[in-house]
Write a protein that binds this DNA or RNA. Structure first.
Lengths: 187, 187
DNA sequence: CAGCCTGTTTTACATATGATAAATAATCAG
DNA sequence: CTGATTATTTATCATATGTAAAACAGGCTG
């Protein structure tokens, strides 16, 4: 929980009362490498904080597995399009390493919003930051070549190459594995 | 203002007191066709509601003009990556038709958040909806062909073709105008 | 250790898209 | 209305990426 509160602190301060209210809706859990944290078709009612490990959100287009995003330790992973709409998600969350997770019950959290506006504010800011990330990602996908995208990924997250299979990285970059292999061969 | 409150109503109810507090921070304005509502380099401190007209957000990559997004009447247009970070935006907002706008002073709005949690909640939900749109857009850009993207745009916003020059639509779809022209010629 | 998965790279070929330039078409100002 | 500007389409050629299949590599399991 300490690690989680440190994460929260980056966005917005919390009173002791708010922290005490959050405590009972958080559950620590361990997930084994390659296991799904949430399955396709499930409606997202949980916000996950990654204490240790890497998550990826993926879905199927036809029968190809496509990685929508990665999330590393000290960040949150959520299928926003399901959590915010209440609709089932076509996406799954998988952990790529043995991982330590804190699961935050979103239904209970949203009730806390009515009592603690500071909690609502905290999560508003957390999701605003990821909203900004999405907008920057669109710019990246739309107007950079695959090679530029690969290089900037390396720069932002250099250890991703060691920790994540290239096939997942390829679809995250919007290209095939063959294409990624060609780009890597250039250097 | 009636139109704006009707828009708000879709997301979250507002008390009479909250409405009264919002009133003085909203300014109606008229913008001529093709004029910029906000320039490149400006830090976004205003949220715009479009009563009538179409906006586009654009930026330059080198010397090519790229359309990031469109916004139609009865929606909000904002350079989120600037508003949420307080950093200057590399993007501009331009109105593509003679337009009626309501400008909401964001600095004043954020102060109202402290007094009226219901206002904070309303805007949280408004931005959550656009966050979800961004995520769906990423999926669209990343794993549909240009032709699929064009067709689905036609389906979502059929009148965009009549109201927006194709060159802007092309860069929005992530392709050149020549390429869009080829796709259109197929039918 | 051997054999079998799974992940990655390489090759060959097909195709969509980009770049550039020229031809049309539409729009606008005087 | 006319000429000039801007938008759109068409043509040609170059290139990046996709598809499919095979080769290669590494790691895991019996």
């Amino acid at each position: 929980m300490k690690q989680l509160y440190r994460y929260f602190q980056q966005f917005s301060p919390l009173s002791a009362a708010a922290k005490a209210a959050l405590e009972p809706i958080c559950t620590a859990m361990h997930i084994a490498r390659n296991k799904d944290l949430q399955k396709i078709g499930h409606t997202c009612k949980t916000i996950y904080f990654i204490s240790r490990g890497i998550a990826r959100i993926y879905y199927y287009k036809g029968d190809t597995d496509i990685t929508e995003s990665f999330a590393f330790e000290n960040s949150i992973v959520v299928r926003v399009e399901s959590l915010f709409t209440g609709r089932p998600s076509r996406k799954a969350i998988q952990m790529l390493e043995d991982s330590e997770i804190i699961a935050i019950d979103a239904t209970a959290l949203f009730k806390l919003y009515d009592v603690y506006p500071e909690i609502e504010r905290l999560f508003r800011k957390i999701f605003e930051a990821s909203h900004v990330d999405m907008i920057n990602r669109i710019e990246g996908i739309q107007f950079h070549t695959a090679e530029e995208r690969y290089k900037s990924l390396l720069k932002e997250a250099p250890d991703i190459i060691r920790r994540v299979p290239l096939k997942y990285i390829a679809s995250y970059l919007g290209i095939t594995q063959v294409s990624l292999s060609r780009i890597r061969a250039k250097r």
